[in-house]
């Protein structure tokens, strides 16, 4: 059997705070974690890593970074900058067919929906484990014990055997630092460009809520107790006396809005 192919899917995303500035763009932490796991797994299995992205030529920077970190092959599926998740998945599936395992980040920094991995698993007919927060490789063979985050703080532990699509959170792994020599080579590494199998459907206007860029902030002023009181107590709590009513949906909605307005939550 030829050596297994591990796929790492990377998306080139703009910096939420500098959306028009390419200097600030790159792969999301979750995608970087996915690449790290791909590299680790390839080492375990004696396989190779193929880094894949879908997008225009400018997105190749994430692939070069992947090659610098150790990916054996880089493929760009040529497509427009904004695409439907299902089309992105179809594009990746063309490259990932026959792969032993596919690693993805679960959410990209640019308010992604996290649905590409699910579409991809469907397109490949592979197992899927999405939103994974811990990965333990179970030698031998392409298998892993992964932990998923569920609602309410619960966890689900799954034993996954390949072929599988696994999407991970950014905290699962830190991408290794590329060596200097590898980095120098990667700046001129060749990147395979393949066309989309079926033309991408036009993405109609996407409504994206404004979200300021994430940043680390210092601890807030005041004692924790003071803050807790501020956050939970006072105005809202005393005003919010419970009320049970039976109403038709439109009336219920109107009532809720009126109540929220009454408590001052809707004042701008």
């Amino acid at each position: 059997m030829s050596s297994p192919i591990i796929i790492a899917c990377l998306k080139w995303v703009a910096h939420p705070g500098e959306p028009h500035d390419e200097r600030f763009a790159g792969a999301s932490p979750a995608d970087r974690a996915a690449l790290e796991l791909a590299l680790q797994q390839a080492k375990e299995l004696g396989g190779t890593v193929t880094a894949v992205t879908v997008g225009p030529p400018a997105t190749e920077t994430v692939l070069r970074d992947a090659v610098a970190a150790g990916a054996d092959r880089a493929v760009r599926v040529d497509g427009p900058a904004a695409m439907l998740s299902s089309d992105v998945a179809a594009g990746i599936a063309g490259v990932a067919e026959g792969a032993a395992w596919v690693w993805c980040g679960d959410y990209s920094l640019d308010r992604g929906t996290g649905s590409v991995p699910a579409f991809l698993a469907a397109a490949l007919g592979a197992q899927q484990a999405l939103g994974v927060i811990d990965v333990q490789f179970a030698a031998p063979g392409p298998a892993a014990r992964v932990t998923r985050r569920l609602d309410g703080g619960r966890r689900e532990v799954l034993d996954v055997t390949g072929p599988a699509v696994v999407s991970v959170e950014g905290a699962v792994a830190d991408l290794r630092r590329a060596g200097l020599g590898a980095l120098r080579v990667a700046t001129s590494a060749s990147i395979d460009v393949v066309p989309l199998r079926s033309p991408a459907r036009r993405l109609k206007a996407v409504v994206q809520p404004y979200r300021p860029r994430a940043m680390a902030l210092a601890a807030p002023d005041g004692s924790p107790l003071e803050r807790l009181r501020l956050l939970t107590d006072a105005a809202a709590a005393t005003a919010a006396r419970g009320e049970t009513v039976t109403l038709a949906p439109p009336d219920a909605a109107a009532r809720i809005v009126a109540a929220l307005r009454g408590w001052g939550y809707l004042d701008s």
């Binding site: 705070g17 860029r213 940043m215 680390a216 902030l217 210092a218 807030p220 002023d221």
Partner: peptide
Amino acid sequence: LSFQERMATAEFRI
């Protein structure tokens, strides 16, 4: 503007 807000205007990749 608090000092924290002042510092938050710069980006730090920690």
